[in-house]
Write a protein that binds this DNA or RNA. Structure first.
Lengths: 238, 238
DNA sequence: TCGTTATCCGTACGATGTACGAGAATAGCC
DNA sequence: GGCTATTCTCGTACATCGTACGGATAACGA
């Protein structure tokens, strides 16, 4: 990327991106569409990972020349933004109040986890993103509605949602890394050899003991639920 | 990166990396050192961000030709691994049991947060990393010692540490993104305009209300402490 | 019809990670 | 001291990336 990036990361302008008027009444008609391009990029990321999403490959997937994409998004960073919001459209936004906001919030987190497992590139793409697009806003709306009975003020409710999302993303990133490691038997074998060697060096008694008495292996699902419940049950309305 | 990356990401081999013998008794003597190269890479990342860490720039920083780095680390991924463990050496490993393991665990998390704020590239570099190097292991040892009074089994203790680290990394990543946005006044102005425009469109009543009644602004420090306390106070020994 | 304005995209540039292999330096063995 | 094996050094080269540039193409308003 030859961009010099000297000033403090101007980033993507959400006003331009999501509120930009669709005025062009003159000129050649677009052959493709932002929708189709974004969908192609998402399909690529789902199938081959985020690093497979290159301007050229996405363009080829929709049958366009590479440079044509720049009529639909000013740069790749913006394309990522579009991808994130695109898949957020899969999240159900209908809230069904049950009187138990904690249970509803847990359900929201479980939805997010399933969503991120379906699109394993999401945790990485989400990192450092601040401004939600329309689909993300719709889901945020649901979360805010769920938090209404807490009586928290606006900033606190937004913070709860941000922290919850960060927590889920962090967990899923870890979960995915673990699952990927399990796919290669010699890799886990090397990891086990390494850890046991370290545990045997005498300078890591706690680790040695932890490895010696591992207990019942934990499923990611169970671990996630456990920590999520701790986090949410501890949430207070003060 | 011309690497095709077809098979399921072999990743870095921790055995080779951390336990590899230093046998070479013959041949030309190394001009540089893994230490110096890693330190230069860390300095670069601290000063200019993770994307400024390129093989060529790191090599130039130590006065070497680009390809010379490959005598010290087999690839860039490994260099990242070295960087992560290098800065982990700054973390204090001495545990002072106070009888209150929850307070000690909170202190550990606060140490991690300060550490990541000092090296803002850490949360990103940490993502998906599974196997701790020697310095990280020393810190893990401290965490395990702290968790000893809980009576949790080995796997559970390791999981608590992993989840705690993921939580802190997620929070700090979010915190850093927010701080970066604050550096550019026109950027936050655009964000505010965007959100108020969305709130005014009538289809986001909850967001509109949250923005209208923001409450007292929250410092990152306070938010972190709040959620951390919730997470840890909810931890049980069963 | 003509000028204005978009979109389309071939070409090209500067970076990047790293494969290759020729040179240079060191150590053990005769 | 010379030979040889071994290791480190790094110039060159290549595939691939994001994207600037500008000409060609197409659609509208006048």
């Amino acid at each position: 990327m030859p961009r010099t990036e000297e000033a403090g990361t101007p980033g993507v302008d959400p006003e331009q991106l999501w509120l930009g008027s669709t005025k062009p009444r003159r000129g050649r008609k677009p052959t493709y569409s932002r929708e189709a391009i974004t969908a192609a990029a998402v399909a690529l990321a789902d199938a081959e990972g985020l690093e497979a999403v290159t301007i050229r490959k996405v363009a080829a997937a929709v049958g366009a020349g590479a440079m044509s994409l720049y009529s639909y998004a000013p740069d790749k960073e913006t394309l990522l933004e579009l991808m994130v919001d695109h898949v957020s459209g899969e999240l159900p936004t209908a809230n069904t109040p049950t009187g138990d906001w904690r249970a509803e919030l847990k359900a929201i987190a479980h939805l997010q986890r399933a969503h991120m497992l379906r699109h394993p590139w999401l945790p990485a793409a989400l990192a450092g993103r601040r401004i939600p697009g329309p689909n993300t806003l719709a889901f945020l709306e649901r979360a805010l509605a769920t938090l209404r009975p807490t009586g928290l003020d606006g900033a606190a409710k937004l913070e709860v949602f941000a922290q919850l999302t960060a927590f889920v993303a962090g967990h899923v990133a870890h979960e995915i890394a673990g699952a990927a490691a399990l796919q290669s038997p010699d890799r886990i074998a090397a990891e086990v050899r390494y850890l046991t060697a370290v545990a045997a060096d005498g300078r890591h008694p706690e680790l040695a003991e932890a490895l010696a008495a591992p207990g019942r292996p934990l499923t990611p699902e169970a671990t996630f639920t456990r920590f999520l419940n701790r986090l949410i049950d501890g949430l207070d309305t003060d």
